[in-house]
């Protein structure tokens, strides 16, 4: 959400992952508070039920200041959960009241890679194990130097090459390209997809060998052992 247009410069309100964040200009607390209250009066429905974090700059606030505000806010069905300040007094006060004094970091971006506007002839190289819960999306070829664990997903518009073991879900050619391939040192994936073909019957092997999966002449997704020289034939 963008800062609202009608907002006077004294108060800025923006949407964050944990609700709304209010930041103030560097003015005394009484004025900050009055400005915030006015905003809330004017846009009562917008604030209804909101989770609010406020950044008061370096205003030193006492317990009474925050308690008054918190109680007033809760009457407006607004939950004050965090107070951010450069003032140690305010931080201490907030901690006494059980309020957060730091907004949690944004969700680690590596859990959800979506990169736009990258030319498809550039590959994404990832040099680590992709763990459960991680999803990587990329508009081109993805190369992983590491394992792809169960519960992880790679969705690539191009090929997927894994120097390691695949046990998660791989989707190559996600925008419909049926000429792409998936290859790995050990392709024990629980599901492979190329374009709109799905294969879920890959048995884990006792003695894994490098394999390459692609769509064969009959239009079926098929994995076969990799032999040297394979890439030349494929091209």
């Amino acid at each position: 959400m963008e800062p609202m247009e009608s907002t006077p410069p004294v108060v800025q309100i923006k949407g964050i992952r944990d609700g709304l964040l209010v930041t103030f200009a560097d003015i005394p607390w009484e004025e900050q508070r009055a400005a915030l209250m006015q905003q809330i009066h004017e846009k009562a429905s917008f604030f209804q039920g909101a989770r609010l974090a406020i950044d008061v700059g370096n205003q030193p606030l006492k317990v009474n200041d925050l308690v008054d505000l918190r109680d007033w806010l809760s009457e407006q069905t607004i939950n004050l959960w965090a107070v951010i300040s450069e003032s140690p007094t305010t931080e201490h006060t907030a901690q006494l009241l059980g309020l957060a004094t730091r907004i949690s970091k944004p969700r680690p971006e590596e859990n959800h890679h979506v990169l736009d506007g990258v030319p498809s002839d550039q590959a994404l190289f990832i040099s680590k194990t992709i763990r459960s819960g991680t999803r990587i999306e990329y508009p081109g070829t993805v190369v992983v130097f590491g394992d792809v664990n169960p519960g992880a997903e790679i969705v690539a518009e191009g090929n997927v090459i894994v120097w390691g073991r695949v046990r998660g879900v791989i989707h190559a050619g996600s925008k419909g390209d049926r000429s792409v391939f998936i290859c790995a040192l050990d392709l024990s994936a629980n599901q492979l997809r190329i374009a709109d073909e799905v294969s879920a019957m890959l048995n884990p092997q006792k003695d894994p060998k490098p394999e390459i999966a692609s769509i064969n002449e009959e239009g079926k997704l098929q994995a076969e052992l990799w032999h040297s020289g394979e890439t030349n034939i494929r091209k």
Partner: peptide
């Protein structure tokens, strides 16, 4: 157990990210 290990893997990933 497979389910416990899967969740542990997720946690390890989150710890790496942190």
């Amino acid at each position: 157990e497979v389910s416990a290990v899967r969740d542990a893997d997720r946690v390890v990933g989150l710890l790496e990210a942190e």
